[in-house]
């Protein structure tokens, strides 16, 4: 079994339901995200459109974060999920430097690394990840990519799929339908100072005053 994720960006309407559901389910602290929906505005007024791209850990088949972790806090589960053991983590931030997708954050409340686990705790009891459940348009499709009859496999077979930064050789197990250069390549869109919908993000201080 190799669990994977697929987001159909043609369906996603940027409601952030998945983001909120993830925060609640996993008690993700303020100023940290396991899953977030990136907005990129394209075009010139009045001919403009907004694209929405949910971004989460890709559960790479050859995960640089797992490779660099000195204590195996990041580890593979049998179902392909790249999981994290927060009690094991020493907070070296090697994984943050290694993940090409910016998927890992340092939890200011536990002073340990954390990230999306595809809700491994829910999956182990037969439940879907909470973001999948929350999505009102069923843009998130989750399942076994090794089972050709699964919903995700069928979707992959009938659509044109893309992954983020394939050139990194990480073999992401997170796919996008309707993804393009603009929303999947961080260098293909500009970030203007003061041009974000949320400009003043409150950052929690790390426990123990770590920088």
């Amino acid at each position: 079994m190799k669990l994977g994720f697929l987001v159909d960006l043609n369906l996603c309407m940027g409601c952030k339901g998945c983001e909120v559901a993830c925060k609640v389910e996993n008690e993700v602290p303020i100023s940290s995200w396991r899953l977030r929906v990136k907005y990129v505005d394209v075009g010139v007024f009045p001919d403009t459109k907004r694209t929405f791209t949910p971004l989460r850990c890709n559960h790479c088949e050859d995960a640089p974060c797992e490779r660099i972790c000195p204590v195996s806090a990041l580890h593979y589960l049998d179902n392909g999920i790249v999981n994290i053991d927060k009690d094991r983590c020493i907070g070296c931030a090697g994984c943050i430097m290694a993940c090409p997708y910016g998927a890992i954050y340092m939890d200011p409340e536990t002073n340990t690394a954390d990230k999306c686990t595809y809700c491994a705790h829910r999956v182990s009891s037969g439940l879907m990840p909470s973001c999948v459940v929350a999505c009102p348009v069923e843009a998130n499709i989750f399942g076994d990519t090794e089972d050709v009859t699964s919903g995700i496999s069928q979707y992959i077979m009938s659509h044109n799929i893309k992954v983020r930064k394939p050139e990194k050789g990480t073999f992401p197990k997170h796919y996008y339908v309707g993804g393009g250069e603009i929303n999947l390549n961080p260098l293909a869109s500009v970030r203007k100072e003061g041009h974000q919908l949320f400009n003043n993000i409150t950052h929690l201080k790390f426990i123990g005053g770590h920088h």
Binding site: W33, R36, V37, K38, Y39, V40, D41, V42, G43, V44, R50, A93, I96, M97, G102, Y105, M106, E181, I182, P186, L187, A188, S189, V190, R191, K192, H195, Q196, L197, F198, I201, H203
Partner: peptide
Amino acid sequence: EHSIPATQAVVTLDVALPGIV
């Protein structure tokens, strides 16, 4: 960044960078 001029693509919502780790 190197945006494609024709698209005028601007990120309007994304988390702030984690800063210098």
